[in-house]
Simulated assay, not measured.
Amino acid sequence: MTDSHSFFLEGYIIDNTKRERILQSAISVFSEQGLEKTKVADIVKQAGIAQGTFYLYFHSKYALIPSIAEKLLDDILNIMDERVAAEQPFDKKIDAIVDATFDITAEYKDVLALCYSGLSLSGALQEWEKIYEPYYRWMDHLLEDAVEKQEIRPGIRIRITSKMLIGVMEESAEQVYLFDEQYNDSTEYREELKLFIVQGLK
């Protein structure tokens, strides 16, 4: 009998805590050495597991990247749930979402850069839509609620708008933390983005 941290895969009992250790180790080693220079042996050494155990979960180091991206998105959604309250008016929700997006990007910038380069190198960019589906649904619900409360204009295309909002928020945060090394203060970016979103949806 297995506990909540385990499941069966091809006749083996797979422990999710080991999978988590592999992911955490990979994030650390990739960030330090880069994707190309990292070997599976480096990851398992830091994780404290046998190399054969690694291959029960992932067939290569590149196969880790979608799982790292998915883990990162889970963390993002947890933070959004903590910061965005149902009773807040729409503009305050946008304030919280924008600030959370910038804060998360600042904290995870090395991992985000890793995910982008890794998915591109592994040819798995199509995985993004699947990985982002829970975030799209989360944003869909927020927009639907705002339309119902007449806080934003009716008739918007919910899913398209969700994708656009997430895209512009992430792109703005990445501009500050990944690409514009001379720009140390994100305040102006945040404030302009909040106005842009709220005014565009009124």
Rank of each mutant, 00 (worst) to 15 (best):
L143A: 13
N184Q: 12
H59D: 14
I166V: 01
K93S: 01
K92V: 07
R157Y: 10
V29M: 04
Q175F: 07
W138I: 10
G118V: 01
E127C: 10
L23G: 03
I22E: 02
A100I: 06
K163A: 08
T105E: 02
G155P: 10
L125W: 09
L119R: 03
L112I: 14
G167R: 01
V198W: 03
V147G: 12
Q24H: 10
D185K: 03
I13W: 08
F102I: 02
A146F: 09
V29D: 00
L165D: 03
T161D: 04
K109W: 11
E192Y: 08
E170I: 08
V147A: 14
D145L: 11
L77G: 12
T105G: 02
Y116V: 13
V147L: 08
F7Q: 11
E191S: 07
A173L: 03
E170W: 06
I14L: 14
S4C: 13
F196C: 00
F179K: 05
L178A: 08
Y116Q: 12
P66V: 01
A106I: 07
E107D: 09
F54T: 07
D75Q: 13
V84F: 11
E127F: 15
G155K: 15
E82W: 13
Y132H: 10
V198C: 09
I156S: 05
V198F: 02
A113I: 07
I14H: 11
G34P: 03
I160Y: 11
A146Y: 10
A26C: 03
W128P: 07
D145V: 14
I156W: 04
R153A: 11
W138F: 13
I65E: 07
K18I: 15
I166S: 04
K149H: 14
L201D: 06
S172N: 01
L23T: 06
N16V: 11
